[in-house]
């Protein structure tokens, strides 16, 4: 019976302290709903989101990890998001090469006022991860 249970992905939403967080607060201000299984994880800037955190999350139970922060050109710290894009590109490249579902990591810019965009992203990613199924890595005891 438990096999039939619907798969509810465990998703971490990495948000920068400015636009990303702002987006989540705008969503809340508008009472926009999104799935409960998406949990925010905040850092100062997308450029401060160490890919090691993402790896840790994927190994320790996350089925997916989304990163959102200020749009290019709009970074609160000038260039953090450009650097984040480089870091995440490298990380996705590693995951891709090793067959570890690089698609479980998404990078999408969300501005402070873009609450709807954040919520849409949460839904879209949730569905995307549901399609991908559980992250095989998270249940491995020998990782």
């Amino acid at each position: 019976m438990s096999d039939e249970k619907e798969f509810i992905p465990n998703i971490v939403y990495g948000l920068c302290a400015w636009c990303g967080t702002g987006g989540s607060e705008t969503a809340a201000a508008h009472h926009l709903k999104y799935p409960e299984n998406i949990k925010p994880f905040r850092v100062m800037c997308t450029g401060a989101l160490d890919p090691v955190y993402i790896l840790r999350a994927l190994i320790e139970g996350a089925d997916g990890f989304i990163v959102s922060g200020c749009h290019p050109g709009d970074c609160h710290y000038d260039s953090g998001n450009y650097r984040a894009r480089r870091r995440i590109a490298a990380l996705k490249s590693i995951l891709n090469t090793l067959g570890l579902d690089s698609d479980r990591v998404w990078l999408r810019w969300v501005g402070h006022g873009e609450g709807q965009r954040l919520v849409d992203t949460a839904f879209e990613f949730n569905e995307h991860i549901k399609k991908l199924g559980p992250n095989p890595l998270k249940s491995r005891r020998d990782s």
Binding site: N10, V12, F41, M44, A48, R56, A57, E60
Partner: peptide, 20 residues
């Protein structure tokens, strides 16, 4: 490190966030 985001803080907080 950032004073309020030390690595050990960040890693253990991710662990806890996911420990369902």
């Amino acid at each position: 490190f950032l004073r309020d985001h030390r690595e050990e803080q960040m890693i253990s907080s991710i662990d806890a966030l996911l420990a369902v």
